[in-house]
Amino acid sequence: MNLEIDTRLVEAYRRDGFVHAPGLLSAAKIAEYGAAVDEAVARRKARDTRTLDEKTPYEQSFIQCQYIWEDFPEVRPLTFHPRVCGLAAALIGAPRLRLWHDQALYKEAGGRETEAHTDHPYWPIAGRDNTLTAWIPLQAVDLDVGCMGYVPGSQNDEAAFIDIFTAPGAGKALEARYADTPARFVPCAPGDVIFHHGHTVHMAKPNRSDRTRRVYTAIYFADGARRGGDRAHPSVDRDGIGDGGVIDGAATPLAWPLPDGRLPTPAPWPEMTGRRAQHAKLLGIVPDTAG
């Protein structure tokens, strides 16, 4: 599929490290995709009956369900949508693009802020300009519901690992570092997509509304990228890709252009018996291969 790319979006992304693409998808399609993601989240989280107050600070920032394209086929047309993936490829200048993983990030009513961080340090992918995330709201998102904020130009700096998982408040030091360049918060309408660079500092407002903020995201990277380091991650560990190896396994299929125009078929998950893996399956963060 040939796409007409707005060069202004590419210029803005490369200047600021993020870009807001209004109306990239139709509102009608977002409603359809949103229903599929809602179903995925509901089924994945069925066993997690905790209240917001009973969750960890990280979990209070959002409900997280990863790799839902794999066990919910109705989500796949969004994950691999040609307008999303084609623009993502153009933004990073990649002739071919792969999926790292997708995820739903649903911020519950009363959910806390998402602390300032950069993404790439969480992923064992070598290189600095070959990853980006598509942030796709499934509803209107404003300052009260918990819209995203991005520090323009921060993609040019060295990205540090910020432990937003177990160290509440860790992101505040990063905000202080950019006190002279405050984050730019971006309200969105259904059909809008925001793309941000793997090194861009970003965060989200708390959800002060009485409804859940529903967002789907997908992380993409340039085909040909190699694994950088031995940090554990299912997107490379499932395919046995070692440090320095090209990341081209079944867990990270081509997203643009799609081979023969066909949506990828996911590979089976290996049996995971470790405590951390069992916890992730119980909470619906990753697919439960045992059903």
Rank of each mutant, 00 (worst) to 15 (best):
R14S: 00
A134M: 04
P253T: 03
I164H: 12
R76S: 08
V186N: 12
G146E: 05
A160W: 14
P152A: 10
P266I: 00
N207P: 00
A31W: 02
P206T: 00
A109P: 02
G86P: 08
A173P: 03
I194P: 07
H197Y: 12
Q64E: 14
L283R: 15
I164N: 09
D230N: 15
Y13C: 03
R208Y: 10
G153I: 02
R15K: 08
K205W: 11
A218F: 13
S61R: 04
A35C: 06
N156K: 12
Y58C: 08
A267D: 10
A104P: 04
G274V: 06
H117T: 01
H117I: 00
L25M: 02
L25T: 00
A159L: 12
K281W: 07
I30F: 02
V236Y: 15
A35R: 06
T265C: 07
A280P: 11
R211I: 01
R43M: 02
E158T: 09
L132Q: 08
G146W: 04
L254N: 04
W256E: 02
G149H: 09
I136E: 13
V75N: 08
I219Y: 08
D144R: 10
G245S: 04
H20R: 05
A189M: 10
V186G: 06
G198K: 02
S235D: 09
F80R: 05
E4N: 13
P253W: 06
A140T: 13
Q103L: 00
Q64P: 06
I241P: 10
W269H: 13
W269M: 09
N156W: 14
V246M: 05
V193Y: 05
